[in-house]
């Protein structure tokens, strides 16, 4: 506001040669000094951000070599990396990643598509909330993995039961955040909509939905994290492919480096998924506060 007004209202005096040299340095000095300073700041930031990771990897590499940890159960990072590369080359890793991605993305997407409208409805209409509230409370407090045997019994050991358990796990964070978001929409905005005689559909579309988006996205990101979390656990219990299966199977076959490689892949997948969601969120909610 005032800072933005400043340069507009006070135009720079056209170059008076006598006292002229004084103003240009004032204008230039920050620019000159900010570039190196900014580079240094960026380098420092990059260093701080990677330092902890690098330290962990270094510890991982040296601890087994120095005999601080059992090399059989914790092979050095370089061995794990080699194993990862081999898994990638013979195509096994990709098969498992694909299987896991398909399951988690399907379950996650279905959950978001179904739950956001449901949450908007429950948040907006008290009778719906009163009717569904107790039911939701029971289900919400039932751990997804506790229901895995039920899903396997009802839906078999195939893809359906795994997609379903991911769907189940993703529903709750999205639903609860959406309901909360609708309930906390600024009442003056709702009053504004009413005073403008907006029909209910328009009010939803133009006011409630955009107002809710940030909170809904928080739920979506939480769901993204639990999608992978639950899926890996489910795949460990009963599956013929997938990263969870790869982890479990490697451990059973005593292929310890492969096991760690699979675990690292899970982490990378989770980080990547979250970053993608953050990018989508930035795109959709252009608000910068």
């Amino acid at each position: 506001m005032t800072t933005a007004l400043g340069p507009d209202t006070r135009p720079a005096p056209p170059g008076a040669p006598g006292p002229g040299p004084a103003p240009p340095p004032v204008a230039d000095r920050p620019r000159e000094s900010t570039l190196p300073r900014r580079l240094a700041a960026a380098a420092r930031a990059a260093l701080t951000r990677t330092a902890a990771l690098a330290l962990l990897l270094a510890l991982w590499e040296t601890a087994p070599r120095l005999g601080l940890a059992d090399r059989v159960f914790l092979p050095p990072f370089s061995e794990v990396a080699t194993a990862w590369w081999e898994l990638l080359r013979d195509g096994r890793l990709w098969d498992d990643v694909r299987a896991s991605l398909f399951r988690s993305l399907t379950g996650f997407s279905l959950a978001v598509v179904v739950t956001v409208p449901l949450g908007l409805l429950i948040g907006r209409y008290r009778p719906v909330a009163a009717f569904l509230g107790p039911l939701l409370e029971v289900f919400r407090n039932t751990a997804a993995l506790a229901l895995l045997p039920v899903f396997v019994l009802l839906l078999g050991i195939g893809e359906t039961s795994k997609v379903t358990i991911v769907l189940y796990a993703c529903v709750w964070p999205v639903l609860l955040n959406t309901i909360g978001a609708v309930r906390t929409v600024d009442p003056t905005l709702l009053k504004l909509g009413r005073s403008m005689n907006l029909p209910p559909v328009r009010l939803f579309q133009r006011v409630i939905l955009p107002a809710c988006l940030p909170a809904v996205f928080t739920g979506v990101r939480l769901a993204g994290a639990s999608a992978i979390l639950v899926l890996i656990a489910a795949e460990m219990v009963g599956a013929k492919a997938g990263l969870g299966f790869l982890i479990n199977n490697s451990q059973l076959n005593f292929a310890i480096p492969q096991m760690y490689a699979a675990i690292l892949t899970v982490s990378a997948l989770g980080v990547g998924f979250n970053q993608a969601l953050v990018a989508v969120e930035r795109r959709v909610t252009r608000r910068t506060v």
Partner: peptide, 8 residues
Amino acid sequence: QQYALLPW
């Protein structure tokens, strides 16, 4: 009083 502007 509270402006009621849409922040987005």
